[in-house]
Design a protein around this nucleic acid. Structure first.
Length: 567
RNA sequence: CGGGGCGUAGCUCAGUCUGGUUAGAGUACUUGGUUUGGGACCAAGGGGCCGGAGGUUCGAGUCCUCUCGCCCCGACCA
């Protein structure tokens, strides 16, 4: 492509709405423009990057025998009623009626549609397994789109769905997809981590998220500093403690603790490590129908992880209980304990199982119990409730857990029969019995990946595309197009790079050196060949975008040098 | 959906508090000239429903009411 003919509207200034580097640079460099909240146009440069990512996904999916399909973006609302998700998705589903007053929704994800196209067509175990996917625009009418391409309402997603006759076969495919996703992100040149994720209300037997590591990521990850373990904090686990603070020695007693309400106060009052205190967190658990107050007990040194807490009671939401709600049922904030009370549903953290010499609230104003033996609570409901902190032990190798931020670019999921059962998508097994498909689902955010590349690879000058994602690998920049010999050399180089299958831009604009250099850096071509006054000495320079290093080479050796650098 | 901020040229913004010639700057764009290794200079141009509607006023970009849009924090987010 010749720059003089290309539509690449670069600007000096960022749109005022842009906050993140990816948003700022993708806008300034002319890759995307904003249309409305969460809606973006892809201009020629942006479209090329999208296409590159799509191509890599397609190649890796083909290697796994996954087949590409293309399902209708507009989907009948009946399907969503059938699966029950029309309620669950709520306003995120953009609904509208056609001229015949039939209700439709714009697809936010395509489980229902995909199940629909195989049910009653795939009806034998002999046709399984099957993996179908598409790369398609999705629409979710998010309450608050933000961060440019990172969280748009309209976005491009690769969504794949596999169908199996056994959970073993699903496990095999899940692992194959994890490996394929890993290869995709490696080929894209991204630094990422595959982490354990919350399976949440969807159920199923497991899910993993693919996280591109970047400070601007919306997700917090717990990662091990020595092994490969990583998990979203919503699902992170930790090794059991190996060292314990000095235990208080006290027989069971009721102790007056006037106005001692917080863990800090309690710990100071008794000169005891918070590890031996019991923290009560009361939340109102909201269910599909109705709600109730639940008290979660964890050690005083721990923090409640809300997603884990929500899952432990099967709630769809947890909201802080008000003091009025507590006093109404006779609980005294600051003095709540698990003993001798039947006022509220209790969930105990796994780490409190069988704990001794604990200090807990006495359910009486200004009193705590000391020397509590929690093994009497063995009938209680126990669950993992705590938020893994930095410095905790890795559950796999005992290394140290650190927190880091990640951008979720993929999520793979063992669905089981969550969709196939309600949608009655069944096949006949070897015994001639009808069974719902056992399913997996594999998502990858294609347009989000465009932003993720830049979040991870940019500097103060602009974008730094990885070799696999760059709109063009090489930019041949002519310093002064009026120098006929320079232009002639550049044209020749341009043609020979193209003939070698290298994607190349020829910056033949009638602009000054600095202007063109700034554009080259802003757009982020991996290599810019500078054809300028050094050509008189038979030399040109190659600017390596990632380091901004200038390499001087013989004009005749550019091709081989580029081939060498791209490795 | 709660709280806050902002809508004026393609883009970034001034002007609004305190109403008053023909609404400005920078940048981008067009034409001509001089420049040519880090976003050049000179000259001449084109480009505005001042988000929209209603109101107050002799007079509204500016004041009032309503409304729409966008951004940020939070709630939410397969």
């Amino acid at each position: 492509m010749r720059f003089s003919k290309a539509y690449i509207p670069t600007t000096k200034e960022a749109p005022k709405d842009a906050q993140l580097p990816s948003h700022i640079f993708l806008s300034r460099a002319g890759f995307v423009t904003q249309v409305a909240a969460g809606l973006y146009n892809f201009l020629p440069m942006g479209k090329r990057v999208l296409r590159k990512i799509e191509n890599i996904i397609n190649e890796e999916m083909a290697a796994c025998d996954a087949q590409e399909v293309d399902l209708s973006f507009v989907t009948p609302a009946e399907l969503w009623e059938e699966s029950g998700r029309i309620e669950k998705f709520g306003k995120e589903l953009l609904r509208f009626r056609d001229r015949k007053e039939n209700l439709f929704v714009l697809g936010p994800t395509h489980e229902e549609m995909m199940v629909n196209i195989v049910r009653n067509r795939v009806n034998s175990y002999k046709q399984l397994p099957m993996n179908l996917y598409q790369i398609k625009t999705k629409f979710r009418d998010e309450a608050r789109p933000r961060f440019g391409l990172m969280r748009g309402r309209e976005f491009v997603m690769k969504d794949g769905y596999s169908f199996h006759s056994s959970t073993e076969d699903l496990d095999r495919e899940f692992d194959a997809m994890e490996a394929a996703y890993k290869r995709i992100l490696e080929r894209l040149g991204l630094n990422f981590r595959i982490v354990e994720a919350d399976s949440g209300a969807i159920g199923g037997t497991g899910s993993k998220e693919l996280m591109v590591l970047a400070g601007s990521g919306e997700d917090t990850l717990a990662v091990c500093d020595t092994c490969e373990y990583g998990a979203n904090v919503e699902a992170a686990r930790r090794a059991p403690r190996s060292t314990f603070p000095e235990a208080p020695s006290a027989d069971f007693a009721r102790f007056k603790t006037p106005d001692i309400k917080s863990i800090d106060d309690l710990s100071n009052f008794f000169h005891v490590d918070p590890y031996y205190t019991l923290k009560a967190v009361v939340q109102r658990a909201v269910y599909t129908e109705g709600s109730e107050l639940v008290c979660f007990f964890i050690r005083g040194c721990d923090e409640l992880q809300e997603v884990k807490a929500r899952n432990s009671v099967g709630a769809i939401d947890l909201v802080d209980a008000t003091e009025a709600e507590l006093t109404e049922i006779g609980l005294l904030p600051g003095f709540i304990g698990p003993l001798d009370q039947d006022k509220i549903r209790i969930v105990m953290d796994n780490d409190t199982r069988g704990a001794t010499t604990m200090i807990t609230g006495a359910n009486e104003a200004d009193y705590h119990f000391v020397g509590v033996d929690l093994s009497v609570m063995n009938e209680a409901h126990f669950a993992d409730l705590i938020s893994v902190q930095e410095g905790d032990g890795c559950p796999h190798c005992g290394g140290k857990i650190l927190h880091t931020k990640g951008i979720e670019v993929g999520h793979i999921f063992k669905l089981g029969t969550v969709y196939s059962a309600p949608l009655k998508a069944e096949f006949l097994d070897e015994n001639g019995r009808s069974q719902p498909f056992i399913m997996g689902t594999y998502g990858m955010g294609v347009s989000r990946l465009v932003a993720a590349v830049i979040e991870q690879h940019h500097d103060e000058k602009g974008c730094i595309w990885t070799h696999a994602t760059a709109p063009y690998l090489v930019n041949v920049m002519v310093s002064n197009i009026k120098e006929e010999s320079h232009m002639a050399y550049a044209e020749e180089l341009y043609a020979s790079l193209q003939s070698r299958g290298i994607e190349v831009m020829l910056d033949d604009r009638k602009e000054r050196f600095g202007f063109k250099m700034s554009d080259a850096e802003l757009i982020g071509f991996p290599f810019t060949v500078i054809v300028g006054k050094e050509l008189e000495n038979g030399l040109v320079q190659i600017m390596v975008r990632s380091t901004r290093e200038m390499i001087t080479v013989n004009a005749a050796d550019v091709l081989t040098k580029i081939e060498e650098l791209r490795q």
